[in-house]
Design a protein around this nucleic acid. Structure first.
Length: 430
RNA sequence: GUGAAUGUAGCUCAGCUGGUUAGAGCGUCGGUCUGUGGCACCGAAGGCCGGGGGUUCAAGUCCCCUCAUUCACCCCA
């Protein structure tokens, strides 16, 4: 293997796969548009500070997963490991909070230095949404409903929504104290990493997968017993709105999420079809984040979804929803240099009409070109060779019915347009 | 960062306890068939057997290192 390979944890998206990505991107654009969200595009890197301050030290992302570098001007920069902090930065920089509510969506690559495995990469792709300025539960419910709609839209039904509340500044500290007190007495039985978290970030112990930890957590205090009345009512209201939209949710008091900025609602959408990395979507409410980043106190809710994992689910579901049709409808077949010369302008005219057209410039035998055209999914072949050459005509062959007809070279554009329209009408009415 | 498995043709994989010129299927290209495809038959191209080092008369095969992939831990999209 003499030539270079893509860096670890990254991959190339080749044309056949790229069509699936394009289809997914269209669905995302469509769903977000229908819900009234406008796209925002931010740089792929930011000042390191943007992430450290918001995501929080003590989280895995900040402590060991960031791609951080110093540029030639001595600036500390980081390839974005998530979208929410950059989105808030941009919102503040451009004063978008003047007009609330503000609804944004985004999609693109993110970067995390992790050991790759199924559904986990160093460069992966996410899309997500943020809703600023709505403190009420309607916002949480809409965010979740949009996420579920996107998953349904790609033809996946095997998924589950789990939801929890992290409480607020009033009730969360009380829970944390109770949890720490409970675990401190039993620290000896905790897994190594959990023991370290006890001091730095105790809530993260809740989603430990260590069996001993889980047994211990089964009897530990749970946050639902500490929620203040307002937090409890908020969560119940969110779930009621979801239920009214036909969306089932399961309470899971162990969901804590990987970022420090969440308040109240947190949720994950998982699928058993994904293997060990079973989360397809995660999100929640972050009412303190905007102010922490130097803006006016502004409530916010959002979610992010992994695009690779969405595509994996589509594969599992064997859905045809993302398999687009061929772009090339007409194959031009020229048998010698003179024929190429007379057909190139004709093909150009067809392409400018908005019809997909291509020509095999290798000048292979007629039968090879016809076969390749059929394999590529073309509906029509336009052929010029010896017979047609002298007559100034072309043969148009329907590659499905094999019917042929001769037309003047000047009429080829109108003829293929008409044939394609007729063919579409016939297929559409079946 | 930890553990395990796997790296042979474009793809999927054979290659037994080390033994001549490394194989198959699919795909590609060509021919049978000077101008009409999907079938059939015939043929060809394409491999420093992931990379490096070692053991041996001899390494795709055994050992070490390294890189990559996959799965799991961790964590999450």
């Amino acid at each position: 293997m003499e030539h270079a390979a893509a860096p670890r944890g990254t991959f190339d998206i080749l044309p056949t796969q790229a069509r699936r990505w394009q289809a997914l991107e269209r669905i995302i654009d469509d769903v977000c548009g229908r819900f009234g969200y406008g796209e925002i595009r931010t740089p792929m890197f930011e000042s390191t500070d943007v992430f450290v301050r918001t995501i929080g030290t003590g989280t895995d992302i900040v402590d060991k997963e960031m791609y951080t570098f110093t540029d030639r001007g001595g600036r500390q920069l980081t390839l974005r490991p998530e979208f929410t902090a950059p989105a808030v930065r941009a919102v503040l920089e451009h004063n978008l909070l003047q007009t609330l509510p503000l609804k944004l969506y985004y999609r693109g690559p993110i970067f995390r230095y992790e050991r790759p495995q199924k559904g986990r990469y160093r460069q992966s792709h996410q899309w997500g949404i943020e809703l600023f300025g709505v403190a009420g539960p309607e916002a949480d419910a809409e965010i979740i409903a949009l996420g579920m709609e996107a998953i349904e839209a790609i033809g996946v039904h095997d998924h589950a929504l789990e939801i929890n509340s992290m409480g607020c500044d009033e009730c969360r500290p009380r829970f944390r104290d109770a949890l720490v007190a409970y675990l401190r007495d039993r620290a000896g039985g905790l897994a190594q990493t959990s023991r370290e978290r006890l001091a730095r970030n105790p809530l993260r112990i809740l989603d430990s997968k260590d069996e001993g930890d889980r047994r211990m957590l089964a009897d530990a205090p749970t946050i639902d017993r500490f929620w203040c009345a307002a937090c409890r009512e908020h969560l119940e209201h969110v779930r009621a709105l979801l239920a009214a939209m036909g969306i089932e949710s399961t309470l899971n008091t162990h969901i804590v999420r990987g970022f420090d900025y969440y308040t109240r609602t947190v949720f994950e959408i998982t699928s058993s079809a994904l293997g060990s990395q079973n989360a397809i979507c995660g999100g929640g409410r972050y009412d303190g984040l905007v102010r922490e980043m130097g803006g006016p106190p502004t409530p916010g809710v959002g979610l992010a979804m992994g695009m690779e994992r969405m595509l994996m689910l589509v594969d599992e579901a064997r859905s045809a929803k993302l398999d687009g049709a061929s772009r090339v409808d007409v194959a031009f077949v020229a048998l010698d240099a003179q024929d190429v010369h007379s057909l190139v302008p004709v093909m150009h005219g067809v392409r400018r009409r908005g019809i997909g057209a291509d020509m095999d410039y290798t000048r292979r035998k007629l039968e090879k070109q016809i076969k390749a055209a059929g394999d590529a999914g073309a509906r029509l072949a336009v052929i010029v060779g010896g017979d047609e050459r002298s007559a100034g005509e072309a043969t148009i062959q329907d590659l499905q019915t094999r019917q042929r007809r001769r037309v003047k070279l000047a009429d080829v554009g109108d003829a293929v347009a008409a044939d394609l329209a007729a063919s579409r009408a016939a297929n559409g009415s079946q």
